[in-house]
Design a binder for these strands. Sequence first.
DNA 1: CTTGTCACGTTATTTAATTACATATTTGCG
DNA 2: CGCAAATATGTAATTAAATAACGTGACAAG
Lengths: 137, 137
Amino acid sequence: MSDHGHHHPADLTRNQSLVMGELTNAKGPLSAYTILDRLRDAGFRAPLQVYRALDKLVEFGLVHRLESLNAFVACRHPGCDGDDKVAFMICEKCGQVREIADEALDGRLSQLAKEAGFVLKKATLELRGLCQTCAAA
Amino acid sequence: MSDHGHHHPADLTRNQSLVMGELTNAKGPLSAYTILDRLRDAGFRAPLQVYRALDKLVEFGLVHRLESLNAFVACRHPGCDGDDKVAFMICEKCGQVREIADEALDGRLSQLAKEAGFVLKKATLELRGLCQTCAAA
DNA sequence: CTTGTCACGTTATTTAATTACATATTTGCG
DNA sequence: CGCAAATATGTAATTAAATAACGTGACAAG
């Protein structure tokens, strides 16, 4: 186990490292095809190379998938491992993504699920709007 | 304005009605392409016919889009109009979708947005798991 | 009448994701 | 070591999701 709470191998494979590198480098979320384009020089040829790496990275908790964007971001929130109730604030102007973990929110969601007899596996919580900076401008 | 609080014309166009009909009829969410297939007999030929109708229906508040499924459901929750903070519980076994509006949840989301200086436009809240029935089985 | 708007139809294209199949690489173990 | 199982990779083809581009028809407002 690494120093930030994720369950993953000490070393990523070459492809996984390359994809992780692009995501870590990027300011915002990237689509699988954007990642593919950026890794052409590194020898990437097919979407599947990206998707396979992404699958693993998501599994390891190093990357999140943003459903409302069909895109992926590196996890900036060490400790979110095992917590599938992270929320995202996505700025529609600058593309910035902020990751949020909130006890009260989680609690309410769990409560609602419980009341409905619903067994919660995963929550997709994506807030779209304008970040503070863009809203001010 | 109709009797259930949505802003939309008294009459939908033919295409809009057909698409709305399929969604109302269906037990669960349908993808645009599934709708297309089901409307072949009614003369539908191209995806755009479905997407155009869906765009309007979503705009009218009659239909919701489920981002995590790339699918659409008829709104079962009269009065959700103008409220873009509806949550969905999606059963991964039977496909059933339950629409939830919760004050406390909304409040917490608004609070979190406010604290971050984030101007919230739309919230995507999708809970994946097992409904009561399927969990029991 | 004619202009603007809105819905519609059709074809092609882009973007997203998966299926299928072959090959390599690593890992654990006898 | 030698080998089998699991894991990772490469490539091509295909399905699924969504949009772009272009033209036509209906119709209300001026």
